[in-house]
Design a protein around this nucleic acid. Structure first.
Length: 420
DNA sequence: TCTGGGGTCCTAGGACCC
DNA sequence: TCTGGGGTCCTAGGACCC
């Protein structure tokens, strides 16, 4: 069933969108800034070559950007959303098997294309460029994780002409040999550190690691990642767009907010915006969370981060009701005397709007947690340096627990016991 | 000398992605 | 003066219920 997959990823997407309508930006260093012109969220290749990192705050680098002739644009999400739809629409002409993964990426199922994969990839790139003006890179491999690797190589090295195929095992390993763990999809700093702690230092180590051991130590998500590196598909193509599980509307304030009335205004307008999204997706919500935050980049100022969840007796998408609930939540957490930097609302526990009348949202069929308990006569604990074992009447055999799986409060107790 | 075995809801936070 | 705005999944623990 599973055939090769392509990951199609738009190059420097936001910058490319700006360039479609301002061709004079081509060949020049360009960055796009986040809301409030806070930090850099997209860079052209020329900007990357200047050493501009993702996410850097603009105000700290403004002078340097100016000196380097960097062109700066505020973001325009309406434009990017529209361009994204055009790109996806072109891609859908090439295969019905399409997963829109993000605003600028899609996975394509390419079963049945046989040995025409490479020419197909090139035709696809050319079509997207011609019809939308957006350059894309294509990575083709048997699994999503390897397709990500292929795409990364296609993007980094121009000699491949924007398309890379990783179809046989030796080629895949050669590609992985040039990467570090944090270059992999799903690996960031923390996981890389935990992998290193069990002797997995490179993508090839992970590929050849013992899946059972990895699962035991690091969980099922990491085991899937290891298998995907071997070419075993663990992540399927998701053709249907699933309903959202939460909807958020939040903003950082341009300057600190110190009065409750300003906070109320902001929260009311974010709630209205979230409610619009909710209705557009034909959903209703039964919980709403409102939160406020002070400026975390100013640790010397008094900090206050607070959130309150408000339960709605009947799921709704009515802006008025939601704003009322959000303001009630805000009243119980907002405090005078703090300089607030950010606020927002999150709508949770979403249901199809059509289910409201029938009350179908009310009852969840699946238990949220399964508890196992056993009363035992007496516990016999043996503490070792790295493991503790339990023997008890009521347990068929002793349980052994490794230290790294204990939460810190227990390991402290463990240390105490070892000292005795 | 002795008092079960589950369940739900809520809050909070970690870790990752784009 | 100035550091984004969304999402996902997972884990853990407390309060409370029957």
């Amino acid at each position: 069933m599973a055939g090769p997959l392509a990951l199609v990823d738009c190059n420097n997407f936001y910058v490319s969108c700006e360039r479609v309508f301002q061709p004079e930006l081509r060949g020049r260093p360009v960055v796009v800034l986040s809301n409030n012109d806070g930090c850099v969220i997209a860079r052209s290749n020329e900007s990357k070559a200047l050493g501009i990192a993702m996410g850097v705050p603009w105000h700290l680098h403004r002078d340097r950007f100016a000196a380097d002739g960097v062109i700066v644009r505020s973001s325009n999400y309406t434009l990017y959303g529209d361009m994204s739809s055009r790109v996806m629409s072109v891609l859908s002409r090439f295969t019905p098997d399409l997963e829109i993964y993000s605003i600028d990426e899609a996975f394509l199922g390419l079963q049945g294309f046989g040995n025409r994969l490479e020419s197909h990839a090139r035709a696809l790139r050319a079509a997207v460029l011609q019809w939308t003006g957006i350059p894309v890179s294509v990575g083709i491999a048997p699994t999503k994780t390897l397709a990500k690797v292929a795409n990364r190589i296609a993007k980094k090295d121009e000699k491949h002409g924007g398309a890379v195929l990783l179809l046989d095992e030796a080629v895949q390993s050669a590609a992985l040999a040039g990467l570090e763990l944090i270059d992999l999809w799903g690996v960031a700093g923390r996981l890389a550190a935990r992998l290193a702690a069990i002797g997995i230092d490179t993508p090839l180590d992970l590929k050849h690691g013992d899946p059972r051991l990895i699962r035991e130590r690091l969980g099922v998500v990491t085991m899937r990642l290891a298998l995907e590196l071997r070419g075993v598909p663990c992540l399927g193509l998701e053709r249907e767009i699933p309903d959202r599980k939460s909807i958020m509307a939040s903003r950082s304030f341009g300057r600190p907010v110190t009065t409750l009335s300003e906070l109320r205004e902001a929260v009311a307008s974010y709630t209205a915006r979230a409610a619009e999204k909710l209705r557009r997706q034909h959903l209703a919500t039964a919980h709403l969370m409102v939160f406020v935050e002070t400026n975390r980049f100013k640790p010397d100022e008094p900090q206050h981060h607070a959130a309150r969840t408000v339960h709605l007796p009947v799921a709704t998408s009515d802006s008025g009701k939601l704003i009322g609930a959000a303001l009630a939540g805000l009243a119980s957490i907002g405090r005078i005397g703090y300089r607030y930097k950010k606020a927002g609302v999150v709508l949770l526990d979403l249901h199809p709007a059509s289910a409201i009348q029938e009350g179908l949202f009310d009852k969840a069929d699946n238990p949220r947690r399964i508890t196992l308990m056993r009363t035992v006569d007496r516990l016999n604990l043996r503490f070792g340096r790295d493991t503790v074992s339990f023997a008890a009447a009521g347990l068929r055999r002793p349980w052994k627990l490794r230290r790294e799986f204990l939460s810190p409060c227990y390991t402290t107790a463990w240390d105490e016991l070892l000292r005795v």
